[in-house]
Design a binder for these strands. Structure first.
Length: 310
RNA sequence: GCCGAAGUAGCCAAGGUGGUCACGGCACUGGUCUGAAAAACCUGGGAUGUUGGUUCGACUCCAACCUUCGGCA
């Protein structure tokens, strides 16, 4: 048995709920593909709101001040998939981090074998984008001219390209290409529908005590810690800078708090759009619009057919 | 009712001695992507309150009207 079921889609489409139902149906076990739920202590903002008696793998892995990357995720996820398969169960990957999902099923990227060069990154971090462009152009002109307009202005990507070029390991070790028999189900919905759901969820997360959670995190961590550069947290930086003793959300909201909340909503909308773009253009995806009738029934039919096929 | 100020995209907002119908930001839209991805980047559409007047030509000047804000009644 080499099957893996994948449930993806933009935020607020009900991926986890669906995955839990499918897990019951097909004797499955969940693996998260979520780049933020890996952080311990960041629960309300990242939406770890599933019931306690559902076990989800690959969440709560590290503290918000620790770094993590897709290459590490890939390794852990593949190990976990095999472990679950060996138990005779169906691994179900569920999450909205498209890059993480792709690292499992489209593992054609040999650069995963090139580790970050922290010294280099620390230096390059201070360079302007035009200077990074010059450096990369100097090092590898033929690759440089292939960069598209968005890549060439993206400092992260330029630094990584430089890092790869300078890596002593010129002949890249071949990353084993894991060929799982996977079914990729992706949920989607029109933007307006998602925005409404997102806005409601924002309000409910505030009521659940998001601000208290942030307060608690700030006792151990700072805004410059990488984990706090996350939707639902970073927007409140302004508010916490202003008032240190935030106890709870009181209505009517203070003006600064109101701005933070509005910004959070907008950021979530933009995030959902980016996710849709990512999944829209992937091949081999079965897409289901959750505003259509019978979508869930259709998902179960598709999944059953795939699951029962030898 | 009177006096003053202001009316530029869904919101905030720049501008000029009248001259290719107008800077930005947010929102919204589409896209990029492989060891930071809830990140970081790229792209697109949309506007001069209304009606007249002056002028070769007005968003810019003038008048009236409408609306908003402040002050006085």
């Amino acid at each position: 048995m080499n099957k893996v079921l994948i449930i993806s889609g933009p935020t607020a489409t009900g991926k986890t709920d669906l995955a839990i139902k499918l897990a019951k149906q097909f004797n499955g076990e969940l693996i998260s593909a979520d780049s933020r739920q890996i952080y311990k202590g960041m629960d309300i903002g990242t939406g770890k709101d599933h019931s306690k008696n559902i076990h989800i793998n690959l969440i709560d892995l590290i503290n918000p001040d620790q770094s993590f990357s897709v290459a590490q995720y890939r390794k852990l996820a593949i190990e976990k998939i095999e472990e679950i398969q060996n138990k005779g169960k169906l691994p179900i990957i569920v999450g909205g981090t498209g890059l993480y999902i792709d690292s499992i099923i489209n593992s054609n990227c040999e650069t995963y074998s090139i580790k970050p060069n922290h010294i280099l990154r620390t230096v390059l971090k201070h360079f302007s984008v035009p200077n990074l462009q010059k450096i990369y152009k100097f090092l590898n002109k033929s690759e440089y001219i292939k960069l598209n307009n968005s890549e060439v202005h993206n400092p992260h990507r330029l630094i990584r390209k430089i890092e790869i070029t300078l890596s002593p390991k010129k002949i890249l070790s071949v990353v084993p290409n894991n060929k799982f028999d996977y079914l990729h189900i992706s949920l989607t919905a029109p933007n307006d529908h998602l925005y409404q759901k997102i806005d409601k969820r924002v309000e409910s997360r505030l009521k659940l005590g998001l601000l208290e959670e942030i307060n608690k995190l700030l006792k151990k961590y700072t805004w410059s810690d990488i984990g706090l550069n996350t939707l639902a947290y970073k927007e409140f930086k302004k508010y916490f800078a202003k008032s240190f003793n935030v106890k709870s959300v009181k209505e009517p909201y203070d003006a600064t708090l109101k701005d933070c909340i509005q910004q959070w909503k907008f950021d979530e909308h933009a995030y959902a759009r980016r996710q849709k773009t990512w999944f829209k253009n992937k091949t081999n995806i079965n897409s289901f619009d959750i505003t259509q009738n019978l979508w869930e029934q259709n998902v179960f039919e598709t999944a059953s057919e795939w699951y029962n096929k030898p």
